[in-house]
């Protein structure tokens, strides 16, 4: 992982040309995007693991049985499906709240 702010720093006093500056800004944006996407994926995986372990492995045995494995695979699909659904409903509701609250903002 490259350091967000350390890698692209130039010595102070160096006159930076616009193209170089734009490239540096773009690089930074990309690192930030990647970092957030990674965090999101990690959070999702940790939640899936926690929830599906709870549902599919009620009594841990000496290994994961084939029925447990089947349950885990299905559970992951269901969790991702639920995440997608909640995401869509949440964003839709946020938009609606924002529109509804706009006229009363003038109070």
């Amino acid at each position: 992982m490259t350091s967000l702010f350390g890698a692209s720093r130039t010595p102070t006093g160096t006159p930076s040309n616009p193209a170089e500056t734009a490239a540096r800004v773009e690089n930074l944006k990309n690192s930030i995007r990647n970092e957030l996407a990674l965090q999101n994926a990690q959070e999702l995986m940790s939640k899936v693991t926690e929830k599906c372990y709870a549902k599919c492995v009620p009594k841990p045995g000496s290994d994961l049985s084939s029925s447990e494995q089947k349950c885990l695979a299905q559970c992951m699909d269901r969790y991702l499906e639920a995440f997608d659904m909640i995401n869509r409903t949440y964003v839709a509701r946020l938009k609606k709240e924002r529109v509804d609250s706009q006229p009363s903002d003038s109070l």
Partner: peptide, 28 residues
């Protein structure tokens, strides 16, 4: 702002999963 929304969606998915989902099958 986007990350805050994302994090709320994680929380809500977790909450709603616990409330709504029973045993696991090939579909809800």
């Amino acid at each position: 702002a986007h990350a805050r929304v994302q994090s709320q969606v994680h929380n809500l998915t977790s909450l709603c999963w616990d409330k709504c989902v029973g045993s696991i099958s090939s579909g809800f």
